[in-house]
Design a protein around this nucleic acid. Structure first.
Length: 950
RNA sequence: GCCUGGGUGGUGGAAUGGUAUACACGAUCGGCUUAAAACCGAUUGUCGCAAGGCAUGCGGGUUCGACUCCCGCCCCAGGCACCA
């Protein structure tokens, strides 16, 4: 035995860190490359807090793939920069009374050191910082391009206002009515704000999602956020104005019993009559005081509102429709007006009931059976029948007669068909007599009609039943005996009102009961139109189409698609951001700042104490600068840009971080975009990604870029969050797990490997350092393996390696790095028994290098290689002839052993082998093989039991 | 309420429809050691001495065979939500 060296991770990591830095191994020349791979991390905000083990996981994942693709022969761009504008630095500055630039400048080098500690391969020659004038000059330029094309607009509008942070918040920064950052209750304020018109891109942003290789949940989040809904506009004319209303249920148009405006609606004062002015005004005042939180929680609260005194003309019936105001109507969705259809919308129903407005049903409900037994069979036609549903009340008590079915889990009312020529009442009386035997009853009410679609198992028919719901009260308990036949099907049960809804299994029957109670009951589903003039008898779907088309013909509306997405509010009344590059003339008209004046630098003499307006407003220098450049009476916009604007295009800047002539180089962008792999947390699933997609599409649409693919990030991977005892790690909570101690004790490689090994990369999980020793032990074993190398080739080791390589290649595509590490452990476990072939080991450590770059590089050099392992190539298969494959033998699905397969074998040959094999034959001894299932080359299942009934 | 994901040992988690619980942690026992740590070895789903049962949230179904596919529920996490 020679002298064994031991695995000294500290020495190894220190050594190679230095070598790589000296050799600038991570720098790439973008222009030269044809075969590029753009691997991007969501760039961080450079806080002074430092990286914790949760941050590491994302950076290690991207580093893994950066190195992997590099070994695959690609030129990998893997840059890193800093999203350095924003509230945290400004808040720190306020607290510590120092300039935010100072904080940022100090934090970045510290941050870079911590990123380097992960061992990740970044090209630091291409770093950027969004707070740097050389960057934000181009952010301002970008804003001006939107302005030039009419896609940046200043509007007076009600905005979310955080009273504590004293700033405007975008809708998406309001969480449950509270400020995303500080948690204060958000209030409303009317301000002039800059918007970017992202809504113009709503359709394509939605459609574009289909083409992306993104996690389904992120696509679904974006879809929900964009919130496409198809419907129609309907125009109602009043004496004073016309009101446009958006609805998704234009089929219910004949059920409109009022129009309801949002309190913020601009035409509210116009429609309010003198008589109602006071009550409307005081109502509006009251709802303004309601916090955003209360307003949003309002779904559970009573729906308040008042009448405005005026009426509008129904476009189809010409009826006078009263106009109300209520704060359950949102000002910025649709047109801020709702047509009230109480019979077919829960909210409208609530509102109508609490203000005694009429409820006019215009849909005959249609119920489609969903149970397995009664589910409509797709291929069969419908047979139409008339029928009845009878609700029968007890002669003295408040109880109702239900049928409990014996062979199926059903609870229903009494039902039956109507024979031709028979009246509904007569049919019902017959059914009641037959099914429960009661003789003396009184028809109290015809409750309503419905349609029911179901499958009738005995008749094997799809049925379309026109049902009439009848309500009877028994006069006394006189009854005849029920036939045995009927008694076998179901038994009658008396139900108290509380028991009825849980008892009934069919939605049609539940509706019948509610209709009897409420007269009319709410029905939000589909069906056939009634009370709708010429549209009666159409299905809701047909009617919606026809009514929308008719409205369009008459010029009072028509089909339209509406989006939940709102325009992007980019103004912030804050210091630490890029100044919006707009200058106002003495009349207050907005002009683009001239290109040669960019960047509009942040003034340095501002007091950045938040006071409800941008602190920049107080800068004397800033005022003077505008006048100097543009003339007396001119002044700059003093709001700054939302930091999401900074980050909406940074991935373009990485290609040419130091170019002072243009924001980006279209030729390079054409070569490198879209980003091949984008890695970051789920927290940016909506805003950052949506804004970036919007900006990128804008740049292409208006000719700034000429890429064919209009999406910037082709593949996205969301790294799961690491929590500590279930809580998100943050310095303020004091629950940060720092990697430093673990790195010192086990090494960077061990921590990297452990973070990958923990579980699927997309899973969030709770931090538990316990297992890191397992990875450390594995690395020690790998190191020890290098001490016992055999120069001779070893075919069985080569075969083991080939299997391993095949499996990890497949896992790579699905980001299953945890099982890749497992596979490596399994391979090492089986190689450890004897000296390992040099060639096998050599190829093996290349596969380890993306996860364990330091150890891999060390072992690579121990093997005698002069160049870095990262200049080598991902290994190939040995292609050794596979060892004889085994065929699994199962007996009644239980594993009893394997047989070696040589060449192609038939089922019979294998069975013969089983029967002649010493161990296997005794296991099937005395059993009769009824039949067998053979999956060629894999398994043979011998069956002794009869299969269950088919 | 709507939309996504999930539910497998004591724990993190494996499993193209084919021996469920790989890999690792922890635990127990043993070795080494004056001792401890480290390291090495064995055992480790559950009931059972064993043979053999029973186990992948619950109930059905398809299949020779289901963690995996289908239907119906329950529970957990995340998102959206008075969006007309």
């Amino acid at each position: 035995m020679g002298s064994m060296r031991s695995y000294d991770h500290q020495a190894i990591e220190k050594k190679w860190r230095q070598v790589w830095e000296d050799q600038k191994i991570d720098e790439v020349d973008l222009a030269k490359v044809a075969n590029g791979f753009y691997c991007l991390d969501m760039f961080p905000y450079p806080s002074g807090e430092g990286l914790h083990v949760g941050h590491w996981r994302g950076y290690i994942l991207s580093d893994y793939f950066a190195r992997y693709y590099r070994l695959q022969g690609k030129t990998v761009l893997h840059p890193m920069g800093f999203d350095s504008f924003g509230l945290p630095a400004e808040n720190a500055a306020i607290k510590k009374k120092a300039h935010p630039k100072k904080f940022t400048d100090e934090a970045i080098p510290v941050f870079i050191d911590q990123l380097k500690a992960t061992g990740a391969m970044y090209d630091w020659s291409k770093t950027i910082s969004t707070a740097d004038p050389s960057y934000y000059r181009w952010t301002q330029w970008l804003f001006l391009q939107f302005f030039k094309h009419g896609l940046a607009e200043k509007r007076h509008s009600w905005v979310n206002w955080c009273p504590k942070d004293k700033t405007v918040l975008a809708n998406e920064q309001v969480i449950n009515g509270c400020c995303e950052r500080c948690g204060s209750k958000v209030t409303k304020k009317k301000l002039a704000q800059w918007y970017l018109k992202i809504t113009d891109f709503a359709t394509e942003l939605l459609d574009g999602l289909e083409t992306l290789d993104w996690p389904e949940n992120v696509k679904s989040l974006q879809k929900n956020w964009i919130g496409r809904s198809e419907g129609a506009n309907v125009v109602f004319h009043s004496d004073q104005i016309s009101l446009k209303v958006f609805t998704t249920r234009v089929d219910t148009l004949f059920g409109v019993t009022a129009l309801v405006l949002a309190p913020e609606h601009p035409d509210l004062t116009t429609v309010t009559t003198a008589e109602y002015k006071n009550s409307v005004l005081s109502y509006v005042e009251k709802s303004k005081e309601k916090s955003e939180l209360d307003r949003q929680r309002g779904a559970d609260l009573a729906k308040t509102g008042v009448f405005t005194g005026s009426y509008a003309l129904h476009p189809l019936t010409s009826k006078q429709i009263p106009i109300w105001v209520a704060d359950y109507v949102l000002p910025d969705y649709g047109s801020g007006v709702v047509m009230l259809v109480p019979a077919h919308d829960q909210r409208d129903y609530d509102f109508a009931r609490s203000h005694s407005l009429p409820v006019v049903p215009v849909i005959e409900p249609e119920f489609i059976e969903t149970s397995e037994l009664g589910k409509v069979r797709e291929k069969l036609p419908f047979t139409e029948r008339n029928g009845i549903v009878a609700i029968v009340k007890h002669w003295t008590e408040d109880k109702y007669l239900g049928l409990k079915w014996k062979n199926v889990p059903w609870g229903t009312w009494i039902t039956g068909g109507i024979e031709t020529g028979q009246s509904a009442e007569a049919a019902a009386r017959t059914e009641i007599l037959e099914e429960v035997g009661y003789k003396n009853l009184r028809l109290v009410k015809k409750v309503g009609t419905l349609i029911s679609k179901f499958y009738h198992p005995p008749k094997q028919q799809n049925r379309l039943l026109h049902g009439q719901v009848l309500y009877f009260e028994l006069e006394n308990d006189e009854r005849i005996p029920i036939s045995k036949l009927e008694a076998a099907i179901h038994e009658p049960i008396w139900l108290s009102p509380d028991e009825i809804l849980p008892f009934l299994t069919a939605s049609a029957h539940r509706w019948a009961w509610q209709e009897l109670q409420d007269q009319p009951a709410l029905y939000e589903g589909h069906g056939t139109l009634i009370n709708s003039g010429m549209y009666d008898g159409l299905t809701t779907v047909e009617a919606a189409k026809k009514i929308a088309a008719d409205l369009e013909r008459r010029g009072s509306g028509g089909p339209i698609v509406n989006y939940r997405l709102r325009d992007w509010l980019v103004s912030r009344q804050r210091y630490w951001g890029a100044p919006i590059p707009i200058v106002y003339d003495p009349d207050g008209t907005a002009h683009a700042v001239r290109d040669e004046h960019l960047p509009i630098l942040l003034p340095t003499d501002a007091e950045f104490m938040p006071g409800g307006e941008s602190p920049i407003k107080l800068s004397k220098e800033f005022q003077q600068r505008a006048e100097k450049l543009y003339g007396k009476g001119w002044h700059f916009e003093t709001d700054t840009l939302d930091t999401f604007v900074d980050s909406s295009w940074y991935y373009l800047r990485f290609l040419t971080p130091n170019n002072n002539d243009q924001a980006f180089d279209p030729a390079l962008v054409a070569k490198w975009l879209p980003v091949d792999l984008y890695i970051g947390g789920i927290e940016h699933a909506i805003l950052h990604l949506l804004y970036s997609r919007f900006v990128y599409r804008f740049l292409i649409k208006y000719g700034y870029l000429n890429n064919d693919n209009p999406e910037p990030f082709q593949q996205l991977f969301n790294i799961g969050m690491i929590t500590l005892h279930g809580a998100k790690m943050s310095k303020s909570k004091g629950n940060i797990v720092s990697p430093n101690e673990l790195v010192e004790h086990y090494g960077t490689d061990a921590l990297r490997g452990y973070e990958l090994f923990l579980g699927p990369m997309e899973n969030s999980l709770d931090w538990n350092p316990r297992g890191i020793n397992g990875v450390h032990r594995f690395l020690i074993r790998v190191f020890q393996l290098s001490q016992e190398i055999d120069d001779k080739p070893d075919p069985s080791q080569e075969a083991l390696f080939d299997g391993y390589l095949d499996r990890i290649d497949a896992m790579m595509k699905d980001f299953r790095l945890n099982t890749i590490i497992s596979e490596a452990m399994i391979l090492v476990n089986s190689l450890s028994k004897e000296p390992v072939s040099k060639e096998v080991f050599s190829r093996f450590i290349v596969t380890l290098s993306p996860a364990f770059p330091f150890l891999a590089e060390e072992l690579w050099s121990i093997l005698g290689n002069k160049e870095s392992i990262f200049k080598s190539k991902w290994p190939k298969f040995f292609g050794a002839t596979p060892t004889t494959k085994k065929i699994k033998i199962l007996l009644d699905q239980r594993f009893i052993g394997e047989i070696d397969r040589s060449g192609e074998m038939s089922e019979e040959e294998i069975i013969k082998l089983v029967q002649t094999s010493p161990e296997l034959s005794q296991k099937i001894d005395g059993k009769t093989i009824l039949r067998s299932i053979y999956k060629p080359g894999e398994l043979l299942n011998l069956i002794t039991r009869g299969s269950h009934n088919r």
